[in-house]
Design a protein around this nucleic acid. Structure first.
Lengths: 218, 218
DNA sequence: AAATTAAACATTGTCGACAATTAGACAATG
DNA sequence: CATTGTCTAATTGTCGACAATGTTTAATTT
């Protein structure tokens, strides 16, 4: 199974740049994108931009109507909380179950690095960087499973979730709580011997960092 | 929210045709697809085929390596049973919860039609048509929710599942059981007043038709 | 003969040009 | 006055050609 994706091809790079525009708030939900304009801005052909757009459309970040336009997707909070996050939970715990036993030193080194940077982000009270690192952490867990199908589905889900949380004023009240949470999780992932404990900690972590108490009925 | 997808654009048509080749067994798992060949066969340009391939790649049916080739995806039974089907369960029950109350007469007519055709398929002992109708039934449930994001994720999941079951010798032993199952499910969907009952019946149905007893631990 | 290099081929990646479709402005019609 | 039809501009859809890359084959060297 091809572990190495084609992250360096032009269309992926373009998709990445458009993603950046979206996640940094340059492009807001519902805002229009024109292929030719984007092609000119980025100095590439429209064909490549089209492929990038198709990519992002299938990833759920953009939605385009034929002969009309392409716009940044609008996602409802309900969908995020009731559908996307539960699915994310499924995927990540599955990836951890399947991959944990094969984790090498490199994975643990990356974990260590993320923890290091998280502590830094905390010292500088840099919330956005911290959130970025949180995503990296979860990405690492999924990537380490080396299951291509899992990785892809996860990406499409997480992008949608991320897009939604962009337009939520992140409450820094929960920030304090997250700090300890991450320390515990990473410690278990690096040193823990029990897969079950790791999975359960991860599950708890996702639920607590994402789902308001109101929705915890299921 | 744009309920009408762009199912008629060329790339979707091409994607559909390639899908057909896959689901009818013309193209087997791991088999290679060449863009130019496909373009020639279908009488369209390579660009359009490329876009269709990208579509199917993101839907999980194809996997392509840059400058090398594109092949039909290989999916493990483990992924299907432990990841994809549980996610499918999530999605369909969610779609039913959200959409059920807004179902109009047209939806119920379509349900009736599917039931009709299922009975026919049974009389002729046409298993493959029956399976096709089963997919249509579930598709209808999801489509009726009119939630674009949900529909997309569902499609990508179901295509992968379908691809997998293609290469499983469908046991006709369970066939008998399915017949009654479907009658009950459709009856509740058409006449049932209780959403909860409908959801629970659907859940039961998916579990029973897809997951071998061995995997029912969760 | 085995290993290495180089040329030829097949396939995918990128591009600019042209066609098809849509939306909006504006006139013709009842 | 509302409606319908027609033009125009903007945008997306489709195409064939050429560039970049990977694979195979054949020649060359040891």
């Amino acid at each position: 199974m091809s572990a190495s994706f084609s992250k360096n091809s032009l269309k992926y790079q373009i998709a990445q740049q458009i993603k950046k525009l979206i996640f940094e708030g340059e492009l807001q939900q519902g805002e229009k994108i024109t292929e030719s304009q984007m092609a000119q801005d980025l100095g590439v052909s429209r064909t490549s931009v089209r492929e990038a757009i198709l990519l992002l459309e299938l990833e759920g970040l953009l939605i385009s109507e034929p002969y009309k336009d392409t716009r940044v997707t609008t996602i409802s909070q309900e969908e995020v909380l009731e559908l996307l996050i539960p699915m994310r939970l499924h995927i990540e715990t599955y990836a951890l179950k399947k991959g944990f036993s094969t984790w090498g030193d490199d994975t643990k080194e990356q974990l260590e690095k993320i923890r290091e940077n998280m502590r830094k982000a905390i010292r500088y009270e840099d919330l956005s960087t911290f959130i970025e690192l949180d995503i990296q952490l979860h990405e690492l867990i999924v990537m380490s499973s080396q299951l291509d199908n899992v990785i892809r589905i996860w990406e499409s889900i997480v992008h949608r979730i991320r897009l939604h949380f962009l337009y939520q004023n992140s409450k820094s009240s929960t920030f304090e709580k997250w700090l300890n949470d991450h320390e515990v999780l990473i410690d278990i992932l690096i040193n823990g011997k029990s897969l079950e404990l790791a999975v359960e900690t991860l599950r708890q972590h996702i639920v607590e960092t994402n789902i308001p108490d109101v929705y915890l009925l299921d």
